[in-house]
Amino acid sequence: MRDDSNELVFVYGPLRSGGPECFRMAGAVYVAKGTVPGMLYGLADGPALVSGGEDSARVTGDLYRVTPEHLQKLDDLDGLAPDERETSDRRRGRVAVKCFFNSGDSWTAWAWVWHGPVDPGQRIQSGDWLRESRPGLTEGLQRYPWYSLIGTICLVSFPIWLLAAPLTSYYTSPLARFTHDAMLIGGALSPFAAVYSLWLAKRRGESDRLLGCLYAVALMACGFVVVAVIVAVIKSIRG
């Protein structure tokens, strides 16, 4: 059951998954990678999100669902008293978040927005603080729907492995028997790996145009494996 008391939070700096302070998001539920309208600046005390600016400017970050208590802890990171936050340059406000992989999905979330002066020379042109702070390391992982691809590969390999396994049953060498058993085990486990990968893809916010169909097929393949194992066990007991 969904807890409506929870809040959505958009983080765009060190709190992001893979950032140096991502441990502060422990216990939060990752929703998706997303973008918000605005520009990002690298200030001395961390990145700053400035709303508005160029029409096409977007800032990349991660969307989490947190409890009210967790949200309060994130507020306390600035070290300010509650009455001081109302006049601070960095204040929490509502932003419109669009899914990074599927622009049709959108949410309204809290984010810490900068209202003070900025130096144009400090602007992070890509709008992605994690990409700029760790160039080349996370760009590919963040940009592409890897979990969807892994899930699809696992699903496609399921019939291939099961069809290829009988080809090795004609040989009696230890290597052939090992290969035969490995193919059967790999083929049996592949749909379960596909289900898990596609579930992670959905949590990451990757495009879900095909995820529903692939997920259903993977579940049916898992059911086929379970039934086959049950039948094999019954035959072995009776035989």
Results as ranks from 00 to 15, higher is better:
W114S: 02
F101V: 02
E132V: 01
V29W: 01
E206R: 06
E21D: 12
G19W: 01
T152H: 04
R65S: 12
V50M: 04
A193R: 06
W114Q: 03
V29C: 08
Y64D: 04
Q72S: 13
F192V: 02
V59H: 12
S56N: 13
A218F: 14
A96R: 10
S51T: 15
E21F: 11
A165H: 13
T87R: 10
P37V: 01
G104W: 02
G104R: 04
A28Q: 00
L15K: 01
A26P: 01
T35F: 06
G104A: 01
R204K: 05
R65C: 14
I185N: 08
P145M: 03
G19F: 01
A228G: 10
W112A: 07
S169M: 06
S5F: 07
L49M: 10
R65L: 11
S236A: 14
L137R: 09
R16M: 11
A109L: 03
V195C: 15
E84G: 08
I160H: 05
G27P: 07
G127Q: 08
T172A: 15
A44M: 13
V36I: 09
P14M: 01
M39L: 01
R91V: 02
S148A: 12
T179E: 10
A193D: 15
E132L: 05
L211A: 11
Y171T: 14
P117L: 07
F224Y: 15
I124Q: 08
G52S: 05
P174F: 03
I230A: 15
I124A: 02
E139Q: 14
G53F: 04
R92K: 10
W114P: 12
D3G: 10
V31L: 02
T108E: 08
D119N: 14
E132P: 09
S173C: 08
A188Q: 03
L162D: 00
A109V: 02
Y147C: 11
T168D: 08
D83P: 00
V29P: 00
V229G: 10
G38Q: 05
R123I: 04
R65I: 08
G53W: 04
I230P: 11
Q122C: 07
H180C: 14
D4C: 09
I185W: 14
K33S: 06
W112D: 02
R65E: 15
P135M: 01
R177C: 10
S88C: 03
Y144A: 13
W161D: 06
V66G: 04
D78E: 07
A221N: 09
P166R: 00
A218Q: 12
L155E: 09
R203T: 04
G223T: 03
K202Q: 15
A194D: 07
L63C: 00
S207V: 09
V50E: 00
D181T: 14
P14H: 01
S207K: 09
S133R: 10
P82Q: 02
R65D: 13
